[in-house]
Nucleic acid binder design. Structure first.
Lengths: 207, 207
DNA sequence: CGGAGTATCTAGACGGTGTCAAGATGGATT
DNA sequence: AATCCATCTTGACACCGTCTAGATACTCCG
Protein backbone atom coordinates (compact mmCIF):
# COMPACT_ATOMS: atom_id res chain seq x y z
CA UNK A 1 0.00 0.00 0.00
CA UNK A 2 2.00 2.94 -1.24
CA UNK A 3 1.15 6.47 -2.12
CA UNK A 4 0.99 7.66 -5.68
CA UNK A 5 3.92 10.05 -5.48
CA UNK A 6 6.62 7.52 -4.88
CA UNK A 7 9.26 6.35 -7.28
CA UNK A 8 8.47 3.88 -10.01
CA UNK A 9 9.64 3.59 -13.53
CA UNK A 10 10.21 7.23 -14.13
CA UNK A 11 11.29 8.35 -10.70
CA UNK A 12 8.52 10.71 -9.75
CA UNK A 13 6.55 11.33 -12.87
CA UNK A 14 3.72 13.06 -11.10
CA UNK A 15 5.96 15.79 -9.77
CA UNK A 16 7.86 15.95 -13.04
CA UNK A 17 4.64 16.54 -14.95
CA UNK A 18 3.56 19.29 -12.58
CA UNK A 19 6.93 20.97 -12.95
CA UNK A 20 6.75 20.62 -16.72
CA UNK A 21 3.27 22.10 -16.68
CA UNK A 22 4.38 25.07 -14.59
CA UNK A 23 7.30 25.66 -16.92
CA UNK A 24 5.03 25.57 -19.95
CA UNK A 25 2.59 27.94 -18.24
CA UNK A 26 5.42 30.38 -17.68
CA UNK A 27 6.67 30.18 -21.23
CA UNK A 28 3.53 29.83 -23.32
CA UNK A 29 0.70 30.93 -21.06
CA UNK A 30 -2.48 29.07 -20.21
CA UNK A 31 -3.37 28.34 -23.82
CA UNK A 32 -0.02 26.69 -24.38
CA UNK A 33 -0.41 24.18 -21.58
CA UNK A 34 -1.33 20.78 -22.90
CA UNK A 35 -1.33 17.25 -21.52
CA UNK A 36 0.67 15.99 -24.45
CA UNK A 37 3.11 18.87 -24.24
CA UNK A 38 3.74 18.28 -20.55
CA UNK A 39 4.20 14.58 -21.25
CA UNK A 40 6.69 15.27 -24.02
CA UNK A 41 8.60 17.69 -21.82
CA UNK A 42 8.81 15.05 -19.11
CA UNK A 43 9.94 12.50 -21.67
CA UNK A 44 7.02 10.11 -21.43
CA UNK A 45 4.28 9.00 -23.76
CA UNK A 46 1.32 11.21 -24.54
CA UNK A 47 -1.15 9.25 -22.41
CA UNK A 48 1.01 9.00 -19.30
CA UNK A 49 -0.48 12.07 -17.58
CA UNK A 50 -3.96 10.57 -17.68
CA UNK A 51 -2.89 7.89 -15.23
CA UNK A 52 -1.77 10.39 -12.60
CA UNK A 53 -4.29 13.15 -13.11
CA UNK A 54 -7.20 11.52 -14.86
CA UNK A 55 -7.84 14.51 -17.07
CA UNK A 56 -6.52 17.91 -17.98
CA UNK A 57 -8.53 19.33 -15.12
CA UNK A 58 -6.61 17.04 -12.81
CA UNK A 59 -3.27 18.40 -13.98
CA UNK A 60 -4.53 21.96 -13.69
CA UNK A 61 -5.72 21.23 -10.16
CA UNK A 62 -2.36 19.80 -9.19
CA UNK A 63 -0.56 22.82 -10.65
CA UNK A 64 -2.90 25.21 -8.86
CA UNK A 65 -2.24 23.38 -5.60
CA UNK A 66 1.49 23.88 -5.99
CA UNK A 67 0.73 27.46 -6.95
CA UNK A 68 -1.11 28.09 -3.68
CA UNK A 69 1.74 26.52 -1.75
CA UNK A 70 4.34 28.75 -3.40
CA UNK A 71 2.03 31.71 -3.02
CA UNK A 72 1.74 30.98 0.68
CA UNK A 73 5.50 30.64 0.96
CA UNK A 74 6.16 33.90 -0.89
CA UNK A 75 3.77 35.84 1.33
CA UNK A 76 5.26 34.22 4.41
CA UNK A 77 8.78 35.28 3.47
CA UNK A 78 7.67 38.84 2.80
CA UNK A 79 5.77 39.05 6.08
CA UNK A 80 8.62 37.64 8.11
CA UNK A 81 11.03 40.12 6.60
CA UNK A 82 8.75 43.09 7.32
CA UNK A 83 8.71 45.28 10.42
CA UNK A 84 6.27 44.26 13.11
CA UNK A 85 3.93 47.20 12.66
CA UNK A 86 0.57 45.85 11.42
CA UNK A 87 0.36 48.28 8.53
CA UNK A 88 3.90 47.52 7.45
CA UNK A 89 3.19 43.81 7.48
CA UNK A 90 0.04 44.33 5.45
CA UNK A 91 2.00 46.49 3.05
CA UNK A 92 4.61 43.78 2.64
CA UNK A 93 1.97 41.13 2.09
CA UNK A 94 0.23 43.26 -0.51
CA UNK A 95 3.47 43.82 -2.35
CA UNK A 96 4.24 40.11 -2.27
CA UNK A 97 0.70 39.29 -3.43
CA UNK A 98 0.90 41.54 -6.46
CA UNK A 99 4.51 40.55 -7.07
CA UNK A 100 3.62 36.89 -7.19
CA UNK A 101 0.69 37.60 -9.50
CA UNK A 102 2.77 39.70 -11.88
CA UNK A 103 5.61 37.20 -11.97
CA UNK A 104 3.30 34.21 -12.41
CA UNK A 105 0.30 35.54 -14.30
CA UNK A 106 -0.76 32.22 -15.75
CA UNK A 107 -0.56 30.41 -12.42
CA UNK A 108 -2.48 33.01 -10.46
CA UNK A 109 -5.10 33.11 -13.17
CA UNK A 110 -5.40 29.36 -12.88
CA UNK A 111 -5.57 29.49 -9.08
CA UNK A 112 -8.57 31.79 -9.22
CA UNK A 113 -10.32 30.36 -12.27
CA UNK A 114 -13.07 28.71 -10.29
CA UNK A 115 -14.85 25.85 -12.06
CA UNK A 116 -11.80 25.07 -14.15
CA UNK A 117 -10.34 23.36 -11.08
CA UNK A 118 -11.57 20.35 -9.16
CA UNK A 119 -12.32 21.77 -5.72
CA UNK A 120 -13.35 18.37 -4.42
CA UNK A 121 -9.66 17.47 -4.11
CA UNK A 122 -8.54 18.02 -0.56
CA UNK A 123 -4.95 19.15 -1.23
CA UNK A 124 -6.18 22.07 -3.32
CA UNK A 125 -8.67 23.18 -0.67
CA UNK A 126 -6.10 22.91 2.09
CA UNK A 127 -3.50 24.88 0.19
CA UNK A 128 -5.99 27.61 -0.68
CA UNK A 129 -7.35 27.78 2.86
CA UNK A 130 -3.86 28.09 4.27
CA UNK A 131 -3.09 31.00 1.97
CA UNK A 132 -6.29 32.77 2.91
CA UNK A 133 -5.75 32.17 6.61
CA UNK A 134 -2.37 33.82 6.27
CA UNK A 135 -3.91 36.91 4.75
CA UNK A 136 -6.57 36.91 7.42
CA UNK A 137 -3.97 36.89 10.15
CA UNK A 138 -2.29 39.89 8.62
CA UNK A 139 -5.48 41.90 8.44
CA UNK A 140 -6.55 41.06 12.00
CA UNK A 141 -4.08 43.22 13.92
CA UNK A 142 -4.46 46.02 11.42
CA UNK A 143 -8.20 45.89 11.94
CA UNK A 144 -7.76 45.86 15.71
CA UNK A 145 -5.44 48.83 15.39
CA UNK A 146 -8.24 50.56 13.55
CA UNK A 147 -10.79 49.86 16.25
CA UNK A 148 -12.81 47.18 14.53
CA UNK A 149 -14.47 45.06 17.17
CA UNK A 150 -17.33 43.01 15.78
CA UNK A 151 -16.49 39.81 13.98
CA UNK A 152 -18.76 40.56 11.03
CA UNK A 153 -17.13 43.91 10.56
CA UNK A 154 -13.70 42.38 10.73
CA UNK A 155 -14.55 39.83 8.07
CA UNK A 156 -16.01 42.52 5.90
CA UNK A 157 -12.84 44.54 6.18
CA UNK A 158 -10.79 41.44 5.50
CA UNK A 159 -12.73 40.77 2.35
CA UNK A 160 -12.34 44.38 1.34
CA UNK A 161 -8.59 44.23 1.71
CA UNK A 162 -8.37 40.97 -0.13
CA UNK A 163 -10.60 42.26 -2.91
CA UNK A 164 -8.59 45.40 -3.48
CA UNK A 165 -5.26 43.63 -3.56
CA UNK A 166 -6.54 40.82 -5.69
CA UNK A 167 -8.36 43.16 -8.02
CA UNK A 168 -5.29 45.31 -8.45
CA UNK A 169 -3.23 42.24 -9.28
CA UNK A 170 -5.80 41.00 -11.78
CA UNK A 171 -6.15 44.39 -13.45
CA UNK A 172 -2.38 44.59 -13.68
CA UNK A 173 -2.20 41.24 -15.40
CA UNK A 174 -5.11 42.08 -17.68
CA UNK A 175 -2.98 44.93 -19.01
CA UNK A 176 -5.59 47.45 -17.99
CA UNK A 177 -3.32 48.97 -15.37
CA UNK A 178 -0.68 50.66 -17.45
CA UNK A 179 -2.89 51.10 -20.49
CA UNK A 180 -4.45 54.52 -20.69
CA UNK A 181 -4.47 56.90 -17.76
CA UNK A 182 -3.71 54.52 -14.91
CA UNK A 183 -0.29 54.09 -13.40
CA UNK A 184 1.82 50.96 -13.36
CA UNK A 185 1.65 48.31 -10.73
CA UNK A 186 4.32 50.00 -8.65
CA UNK A 187 1.46 51.93 -7.08
CA UNK A 188 0.54 48.93 -4.98
CA UNK A 189 2.35 49.94 -1.77
CA UNK A 190 0.14 52.99 -1.52
CA UNK A 191 -2.96 50.85 -1.57
CA UNK A 192 -2.31 49.52 1.89
CA UNK A 193 -1.45 52.99 3.05
CA UNK A 194 -4.57 54.33 1.49
CA UNK A 195 -6.60 51.76 3.33
CA UNK A 196 -5.12 51.91 6.77
CA UNK A 197 -2.49 54.49 7.46
CA UNK A 198 -3.18 57.60 5.49
CA UNK A 199 -6.87 58.13 5.48
CA UNK A 200 -8.66 60.07 4.20
CA UNK A 201 -6.48 60.37 1.11
CA UNK A 202 -7.08 64.11 0.89
CA UNK A 203 -4.87 65.01 3.83
CA UNK A 204 -2.11 62.61 3.18
CA UNK A 205 1.55 63.46 3.42
CA UNK A 206 3.73 63.48 0.34
CA UNK A 207 3.84 59.72 -0.39
CA UNK B 1 -17.58 49.96 -50.61
CA UNK B 2 -19.71 48.51 -47.84
CA UNK B 3 -19.05 47.57 -44.27
CA UNK B 4 -18.68 43.97 -43.23
CA UNK B 5 -21.77 43.83 -41.08
CA UNK B 6 -24.33 44.20 -43.80
CA UNK B 7 -26.61 41.57 -45.19
CA UNK B 8 -25.36 38.95 -47.57
CA UNK B 9 -26.15 35.32 -47.86
CA UNK B 10 -26.92 34.69 -44.25
CA UNK B 11 -28.33 38.00 -43.21
CA UNK B 12 -25.81 39.18 -40.69
CA UNK B 13 -23.60 36.24 -39.96
CA UNK B 14 -21.06 38.23 -38.04
CA UNK B 15 -23.56 39.33 -35.46
CA UNK B 16 -25.18 35.90 -35.43
CA UNK B 17 -21.84 34.29 -34.65
CA UNK B 18 -21.16 36.71 -31.83
CA UNK B 19 -24.59 36.02 -30.38
CA UNK B 20 -24.06 32.29 -30.73
CA UNK B 21 -20.71 32.61 -29.02
CA UNK B 22 -22.20 34.58 -26.13
CA UNK B 23 -24.93 31.98 -25.73
CA UNK B 24 -22.40 29.18 -25.69
CA UNK B 25 -20.29 31.07 -23.16
CA UNK B 26 -23.30 31.35 -20.90
CA UNK B 27 -24.22 27.70 -21.20
CA UNK B 28 -20.90 25.90 -21.36
CA UNK B 29 -18.37 28.39 -20.06
CA UNK B 30 -15.16 29.56 -21.70
CA UNK B 31 -13.90 26.03 -22.37
CA UNK B 32 -17.07 25.19 -24.24
CA UNK B 33 -16.76 28.03 -26.72
CA UNK B 34 -15.47 26.87 -30.07
CA UNK B 35 -15.37 28.27 -33.56
CA UNK B 36 -17.00 25.17 -34.97
CA UNK B 37 -19.64 25.15 -32.27
CA UNK B 38 -20.57 28.77 -32.89
CA UNK B 39 -20.71 28.07 -36.61
CA UNK B 40 -22.98 25.07 -36.11
CA UNK B 41 -25.25 27.08 -33.81
CA UNK B 42 -25.53 29.78 -36.44
CA UNK B 43 -26.26 27.16 -39.06
CA UNK B 44 -23.22 27.69 -41.25
CA UNK B 45 -20.22 25.62 -42.19
CA UNK B 46 -17.35 25.08 -39.81
CA UNK B 47 -14.98 27.43 -41.61
CA UNK B 48 -17.36 30.34 -41.98
CA UNK B 49 -16.24 32.15 -38.80
CA UNK B 50 -12.68 32.36 -40.09
CA UNK B 51 -13.80 34.73 -42.81
CA UNK B 52 -15.31 37.23 -40.38
CA UNK B 53 -12.92 36.90 -37.45
CA UNK B 54 -9.77 35.43 -38.88
CA UNK B 55 -9.14 33.27 -35.86
CA UNK B 56 -10.59 32.20 -32.57
CA UNK B 57 -8.93 35.21 -30.98
CA UNK B 58 -10.90 37.37 -33.40
CA UNK B 59 -14.20 35.92 -32.26
CA UNK B 60 -13.20 36.26 -28.62
CA UNK B 61 -12.27 39.88 -29.26
CA UNK B 62 -15.61 40.59 -30.91
CA UNK B 63 -17.47 38.96 -28.03
CA UNK B 64 -15.46 40.92 -25.47
CA UNK B 65 -16.26 44.11 -27.33
CA UNK B 66 -19.96 43.42 -27.08
CA UNK B 67 -19.36 42.49 -23.45
CA UNK B 68 -17.85 45.90 -22.70
CA UNK B 69 -20.74 47.60 -24.47
CA UNK B 70 -23.33 45.73 -22.42
CA UNK B 71 -21.27 46.26 -19.29
CA UNK B 72 -21.23 49.98 -19.99
CA UNK B 73 -24.96 49.98 -20.59
CA UNK B 74 -25.70 48.04 -17.40
CA UNK B 75 -23.64 50.43 -15.29
CA UNK B 76 -25.24 53.39 -17.02
CA UNK B 77 -28.74 52.18 -16.20
CA UNK B 78 -27.82 51.58 -12.58
CA UNK B 79 -26.21 54.99 -12.23
CA UNK B 80 -29.12 56.79 -13.84
CA UNK B 81 -31.56 55.07 -11.52
CA UNK B 82 -29.55 55.94 -8.42
CA UNK B 83 -29.91 59.02 -6.21
CA UNK B 84 -27.63 61.90 -7.05
CA UNK B 85 -25.48 61.62 -3.95
CA UNK B 86 -21.95 60.67 -5.07
CA UNK B 87 -21.69 57.80 -2.64
CA UNK B 88 -25.06 56.43 -3.66
CA UNK B 89 -24.10 56.54 -7.30
CA UNK B 90 -20.86 54.77 -6.57
CA UNK B 91 -22.75 52.21 -4.55
CA UNK B 92 -25.13 51.60 -7.43
CA UNK B 93 -22.27 51.30 -9.90
CA UNK B 94 -20.51 48.81 -7.64
CA UNK B 95 -23.61 46.73 -7.32
CA UNK B 96 -24.12 46.76 -11.08
CA UNK B 97 -20.45 45.90 -11.66
CA UNK B 98 -20.57 42.85 -9.44
CA UNK B 99 -24.04 41.95 -10.67
CA UNK B 100 -22.89 41.92 -14.26
CA UNK B 101 -19.84 39.86 -13.36
CA UNK B 102 -21.86 37.32 -11.41
CA UNK B 103 -24.48 37.02 -14.12
CA UNK B 104 -21.95 36.79 -16.94
CA UNK B 105 -18.91 35.14 -15.40
CA UNK B 106 -17.49 33.80 -18.64
CA UNK B 107 -17.83 37.11 -20.45
CA UNK B 108 -16.27 39.21 -17.72
CA UNK B 109 -13.46 36.71 -17.45
CA UNK B 110 -12.92 37.07 -21.16
CA UNK B 111 -13.07 40.86 -21.01
CA UNK B 112 -10.23 40.94 -18.50
CA UNK B 113 -8.16 38.06 -19.81
CA UNK B 114 -5.47 40.28 -21.25
CA UNK B 115 -3.35 38.71 -23.98
CA UNK B 116 -6.16 36.38 -25.00
CA UNK B 117 -7.75 39.33 -26.81
CA UNK B 118 -6.48 41.38 -29.72
CA UNK B 119 -6.10 44.84 -28.25
CA UNK B 120 -4.95 46.25 -31.56
CA UNK B 121 -8.58 46.27 -32.70
CA UNK B 122 -10.04 49.72 -32.24
CA UNK B 123 -13.63 48.73 -31.34
CA UNK B 124 -12.43 46.71 -28.36
CA UNK B 125 -10.25 49.54 -27.07
CA UNK B 126 -13.01 52.09 -27.51
CA UNK B 127 -15.58 49.97 -25.72
CA UNK B 128 -13.20 49.28 -22.84
CA UNK B 129 -12.15 52.91 -22.56
CA UNK B 130 -15.76 54.06 -22.48
CA UNK B 131 -16.53 51.67 -19.65
CA UNK B 132 -13.54 52.84 -17.66
CA UNK B 133 -14.33 56.49 -18.27
CA UNK B 134 -17.78 55.86 -16.87
CA UNK B 135 -16.34 54.44 -13.69
CA UNK B 136 -13.90 57.31 -13.50
CA UNK B 137 -16.70 59.83 -13.71
CA UNK B 138 -18.45 58.13 -10.82
CA UNK B 139 -15.42 58.22 -8.59
CA UNK B 140 -14.56 61.84 -9.34
CA UNK B 141 -17.33 63.56 -7.37
CA UNK B 142 -16.95 61.08 -4.55
CA UNK B 143 -13.26 61.89 -4.41
CA UNK B 144 -13.99 65.60 -4.46
CA UNK B 145 -16.48 65.10 -1.67
CA UNK B 146 -13.65 63.48 0.25
CA UNK B 147 -11.28 66.38 -0.27
CA UNK B 148 -8.97 64.82 -2.82
CA UNK B 149 -7.37 67.61 -4.79
CA UNK B 150 -4.27 66.46 -6.64
CA UNK B 151 -4.74 64.61 -9.89
CA UNK B 152 -2.29 61.86 -8.98
CA UNK B 153 -4.12 61.21 -5.77
CA UNK B 154 -7.44 61.14 -7.51
CA UNK B 155 -6.22 58.56 -10.01
CA UNK B 156 -4.79 56.50 -7.23
CA UNK B 157 -8.11 56.53 -5.44
CA UNK B 158 -9.87 55.70 -8.66
CA UNK B 159 -7.64 52.72 -9.19
CA UNK B 160 -8.21 51.66 -5.63
CA UNK B 161 -11.97 51.74 -6.04
CA UNK B 162 -11.80 49.90 -9.31
CA UNK B 163 -9.46 47.31 -7.86
CA UNK B 164 -11.65 46.56 -4.88
CA UNK B 165 -14.84 46.24 -6.89
CA UNK B 166 -13.18 44.23 -9.60
CA UNK B 167 -11.37 42.03 -7.13
CA UNK B 168 -14.55 41.36 -5.24
CA UNK B 169 -16.30 40.39 -8.44
CA UNK B 170 -13.45 38.12 -9.48
CA UNK B 171 -13.25 36.46 -6.09
CA UNK B 172 -16.99 35.92 -6.17
CA UNK B 173 -16.77 34.21 -9.52
CA UNK B 174 -13.78 32.17 -8.45
CA UNK B 175 -16.01 30.65 -5.81
CA UNK B 176 -13.71 31.84 -3.09
CA UNK B 177 -16.28 34.28 -1.75
CA UNK B 178 -18.88 32.02 -0.25
CA UNK B 179 -16.52 29.14 0.35
CA UNK B 180 -15.17 29.04 3.86
CA UNK B 181 -15.54 31.94 6.24
CA UNK B 182 -16.34 34.77 3.83
CA UNK B 183 -19.82 36.00 3.15
CA UNK B 184 -21.66 35.91 -0.14
CA UNK B 185 -21.49 38.58 -2.77
CA UNK B 186 -24.42 40.46 -1.26
CA UNK B 187 -21.82 42.21 0.87
CA UNK B 188 -20.83 44.40 -2.05
CA UNK B 189 -22.97 47.45 -1.19
CA UNK B 190 -21.04 47.84 2.04
CA UNK B 191 -17.77 48.06 0.15
CA UNK B 192 -18.60 51.46 -1.24
CA UNK B 193 -19.78 52.55 2.16
CA UNK B 194 -16.64 51.22 3.73
CA UNK B 195 -14.58 53.22 1.31
CA UNK B 196 -16.30 56.55 1.35
CA UNK B 197 -19.16 57.07 3.70
CA UNK B 198 -18.60 55.11 6.85
CA UNK B 199 -14.95 55.39 7.70
CA UNK B 200 -13.29 54.23 9.78
CA UNK B 201 -15.28 50.99 9.88
CA UNK B 202 -15.01 50.78 13.63
CA UNK B 203 -17.44 53.58 14.35
CA UNK B 204 -19.99 52.86 11.75
CA UNK B 205 -23.70 52.99 12.32
CA UNK B 206 -25.81 49.85 12.10
CA UNK B 207 -25.68 49.31 8.32
C1' DC C 1 -30.97 43.29 -68.82
C1' DG C 2 -26.96 40.60 -68.60
C1' DG C 3 -22.29 39.83 -67.73
C1' DA C 4 -18.40 40.81 -64.53
C1' DG C 5 -16.55 41.39 -60.16
C1' DT C 6 -16.37 40.54 -55.56
C1' DA C 7 -18.06 39.56 -50.90
C1' DT C 8 -19.54 35.56 -48.69
C1' DC C 9 -19.70 30.91 -47.60
C1' DT C 10 -18.70 25.62 -48.40
C1' DA C 11 -15.84 21.44 -48.80
C1' DG C 12 -11.91 19.08 -47.77
C1' DA C 13 -7.56 18.30 -45.65
C1' DC C 14 -3.82 18.69 -42.12
C1' DG C 15 -1.67 18.49 -37.71
C1' DG C 16 -2.71 18.77 -32.89
C1' DT C 17 -5.69 17.92 -28.78
C1' DG C 18 -8.11 15.11 -24.73
C1' DT C 19 -9.63 10.73 -23.68
C1' DC C 20 -10.39 5.84 -23.73
C1' DA C 21 -9.18 0.76 -24.14
C1' DA C 22 -5.84 -2.71 -24.30
C1' DG C 23 -1.44 -4.36 -23.71
C1' DA C 24 3.53 -4.19 -22.22
C1' DT C 25 6.90 -3.49 -18.35
C1' DG C 26 9.13 -4.06 -14.23
C1' DG C 27 9.62 -3.19 -9.06
C1' DA C 28 7.64 -5.17 -4.78
C1' DT C 29 5.83 -8.92 -2.19
C1' DT C 30 5.38 -13.50 -0.85
C1' DA D 1 11.44 -17.66 -8.33
C1' DA D 2 6.56 -16.76 -9.17
C1' DT D 3 3.04 -13.54 -8.78
C1' DC D 4 0.79 -9.15 -8.42
C1' DC D 5 -0.17 -4.70 -9.47
C1' DA D 6 1.30 0.10 -10.07
C1' DT D 7 3.09 2.30 -13.94
C1' DC D 8 3.62 3.49 -18.59
C1' DT D 9 3.03 2.67 -23.94
C1' DT D 10 0.52 2.03 -28.11
C1' DG D 11 -3.17 2.84 -30.92
C1' DA D 12 -7.53 4.67 -31.98
C1' DC D 13 -11.39 8.07 -32.02
C1' DA D 14 -13.78 12.38 -32.22
C1' DC D 15 -13.10 17.12 -32.04
C1' DC D 16 -10.49 21.33 -32.54
C1' DG D 17 -8.25 25.62 -35.27
C1' DT D 18 -6.57 26.81 -39.54
C1' DC D 19 -5.37 26.75 -44.43
C1' DT D 20 -6.57 26.18 -49.48
C1' DA D 21 -9.54 25.97 -53.34
C1' DG D 22 -13.75 26.36 -55.15
C1' DA D 23 -18.88 27.26 -55.24
C1' DT D 24 -22.54 30.73 -54.57
C1' DA D 25 -25.06 34.84 -54.99
C1' DC D 26 -25.28 39.77 -54.26
C1' DT D 27 -24.13 44.21 -56.55
C1' DC D 28 -22.68 47.19 -59.90
C1' DC D 29 -21.91 48.84 -64.45
C1' DG D 30 -22.41 49.06 -69.30
Amino acid sequence: MRKADQKYHHGDLRKALVEAGIAILGEAGPEGLTLRGAAARAGVSHAAPAYHFGSLQGLLTAIATVGFQRFHAALGRAIDAAPTRPVERLRAASRAYVGFAVENPAIIQLMFSGPRLDWSRAPLCEAADRAYAQLSEIVRPAAAHLGVTTEDRRRELELMVWSSIHGFAMLSNAGVVGRGPVAGHEAIPDLAGLLFAEWPPGRVSQK
